[in-house]
Design a protein around this nucleic acid. Structure first.
Lengths: 199, 199
DNA sequence: CAGAACAGTAGAACGATGTTCTACAAGCCG
DNA sequence: CGGCTTGTAGAACATCGTTCTACTGTTCTG
């Protein structure tokens, strides 16, 4: 349904819904992400969500796929960084992504999306994109090991350790429950201590 | 309202509601924590929630206060631990608390409780109990510094770093999105690396 | 003790939400 | 072209947080 009340071509419905869902998420947060809000934003009938995605979470998962792709891009190292600072740079960009896309981040890792809905949905694609984003970090860790910045160890295990830490700092910051006076400084302390302990 | 349809004495309503809310939270999770469910569980009229707590979140906050008290108790160090292992023991007990009280943990730090409701509610008591729990960790960090296990630094800043890390690991584990094959081993790696970097 | 105020009870009602259903019709595909 | 899929509009349902109404029991105060 376009502005003039016409029927949206079938091939456009899915994309219109995902685009609209992203806009609604950014504007109104996870709480505002309702089927009716998205359908209205997309100029599409609400039933389109169920026809194309199965249920609300199917639509949300499509948005999350985009979120993980953007996260992967943000975590990727910057060739302009010195080798010993490249991995820390990745961590900083991770935080920047989260702070600049808080609603996305919340939807990706928070509990606003119920875990039962998450588990019930067919999320093969989502898992693949999440794993791909993690894979970028693993690549960066490998590279840091090759450069002698981190000691030799299982890159995936080390990447998980780093991810846990930065995710924790960012999550507390986004939730507004951190006890750090200066969250950025605290994040830098965390990075420094952890990378030191992994080197 | 007791089983016999009698009126609950005014002085008992508040406690009955908080007790019931905890039971419902543990049994059905944050998604099941509805005003009607709690009122039914407590054998009290739903309006009691609004009379005594202002709104749903006021009731939830009372439950969270208990959660933070329990967390504080679990984080407290164990005198039986060797000095160099005492702080790591705190971290392990933190994880154990979270895994054993996942619904509480989710309500305390997750996004299932909307942040706008969180901010709008009068949460002085809740903030005090959250800060007290953090204070226990600060005390343990201070103690580790005195024992030479960690290097000298601002105890609160160091505690925040540690909290971020362990919170991150636990959150990803609870959300089922960790990429670690063995979450416990991953947690131990994180502890070891971080404490090493802080020593 | 009596009266006022508070709040406990039951139930209704409202707007919002996810979801399902109905009827009609437009678009797609073989 | 005909059959199938699905887009549209709208209704309906159960559930949820919240507010409201009317009645009444309890508590507090003078």
């Amino acid at each position: 349904m376009t502005e003039t009340g016409q029927r949206t071509p079938s091939r456009d419905v899915q994309g219109a819904l995902v685009d609209a869902a992203e806009r609604v998420l950014v504007r109104d947060g996870t709480a505002g992400l309702t089927v009716r809000a998205v359908a209205t934003e997309a100029g599409v009938a609400p039933m389109g969500v169920y026809n194309r995605f199965g249920n609300k979470y199917g639509l949300v998962a499509a948005v999350l796929v985009r979120g993980f792709d953007a996260l992967a891009a943000s975590v990727r190292g910057d060739d302009a960084d010195a080798p010993q600072d490249r991995l820390a740079g990745c961590g900083r960009r991770y935080r920047r992504f989260a702070l600049g896309n808080r609603e996305h981040y919340e939807a990706m890792f928070g509990t606003a999306v119920p875990s039962d809905a998450r588990a019930a949905a067919s999320t093969t694609e989502l898992d693949e994109h999440a794993a791909a984003a993690f894979g970028v970090l693993v690549g960066e860790v490998s590279r840091a090991m090759d450069a002698g910045v981190l000691r030799r160890d299982d890159p995936a295990e080390t990447a998980q350790v780093i991810w846990s830490a930065v995710h924790g700092a960012v999550s507390l910051e986004l939730a507004g429950v951190t006890q750090a006076g200066d969250p950025e400084a605290s994040f830098e302390r965390l990075l420094a201590a952890l990378l030191s302990g992994l080197s």
